[in-house]
Amino acid sequence: MDYTRQTRFSDPRQHAALFDPLPADPDGIGAVVRNLAVHYRASGIDFPPDRLTEIDSRWVDRILGADRKRFATPLAEPRPPEQRVVGCCRDFALLTVAALRHKGVPARSRIGFADYIVPGDHLDHVITEFWDGSRWIATDTEVDVPDVRLAPGGLRTAAQVWTDHRSGVVDVETFGVGGDPELRGAWFVRNYVIYELAHRRGDELLLWDLWGDMGREPPADPALIDEIADLLQSADAGDKAAERKLADRYADDLRLHPGDQIRCVSPRGVVSDVDLRVST
């Protein structure tokens, strides 16, 4: 997969020129992204319902469009936190990915559980990974951590956590959304393995979009998730055959990839069916 090309979700479309003045390095882009977006929970700001609708902006062009409704200035010009686009870690990562791709830098989003945000907890999280010409480097532009290991102590990928859970190495109930005991455990990590695969294949959907084999019940076919988790880790280790098999499995298996319609279970309390063919 060519990670310099925009996907249907990362494509800024009519707002692409806004990325032109940005620096081509992840640190500089990260500073701009933190000026543009604000986390709907971690910020501590009580956003009104009309602003919370922004958390369901799947497409980068919609995120940038929300900013354009309030500002006519370049993206690097300061925005007060309460006027930034409301989103979550996925949006910080995808904006960074979109800007890097715009600059010709291969970039992708990575999904897993961060050990470095809240001591003793493993919080669901999305970060950016970019290719520096010789290797993939992970960076967290939301909390400004420039070099994140994809390992314990850093970001454990969903595939790593699932494999460790199945081996009895970790307590899977300690992996999930901070402060919400209902949003953690085996079913939650299973969903995140599917998200990890989808983002790797260019479907950078929201963390509350559901399709295929996702749900709150225990996995109907744990062997499927075992296989995908193993392939993801092998691909990360440089196994090109595993990467090809992931692409084939994702394309062919309706349990893994979203169709035209998905179900959005938004944290703002709204459940809706979404047609992914309508992006703007």
Rank of each mutant, 00 (worst) to 15 (best):
168 G>L: 07
20 D>E: 07
121 D>C: 15
227 E>N: 05
108 R>H: 15
251 A>I: 08
255 R>E: 00
207 L>C: 08
87 G>I: 13
260 D>C: 11
15 H>T: 08
143 V>K: 08
216 R>V: 15
228 I>K: 08
230 D>K: 13
204 E>H: 10
195 Y>T: 02
87 G>V: 11
256 L>R: 03
78 P>C: 11
127 I>W: 08
115 D>S: 03
86 V>T: 10
127 I>K: 05
13 R>I: 15
260 D>I: 15
140 D>A: 14
256 L>N: 01
154 G>L: 15
170 V>N: 04
127 I>S: 04
186 A>G: 07
234 S>H: 11
259 G>Q: 02
276 L>F: 03
165 H>V: 01
41 R>T: 15
200 R>N: 00
79 R>S: 06
29 I>Y: 05
168 G>H: 06
4 T>K: 10
267 P>D: 02
230 D>Q: 14
111 I>S: 04
52 L>H: 00
86 V>M: 10
215 G>R: 12
210 L>F: 14
211 W>L: 05
74 P>W: 14
5 R>K: 13
199 H>C: 08
209 D>T: 08
104 G>T: 07
268 R>I: 15
125 H>R: 01
254 L>N: 00
41 R>C: 15
52 L>Y: 01
2 D>C: 01
90 R>F: 12
129 E>M: 07
208 W>D: 09
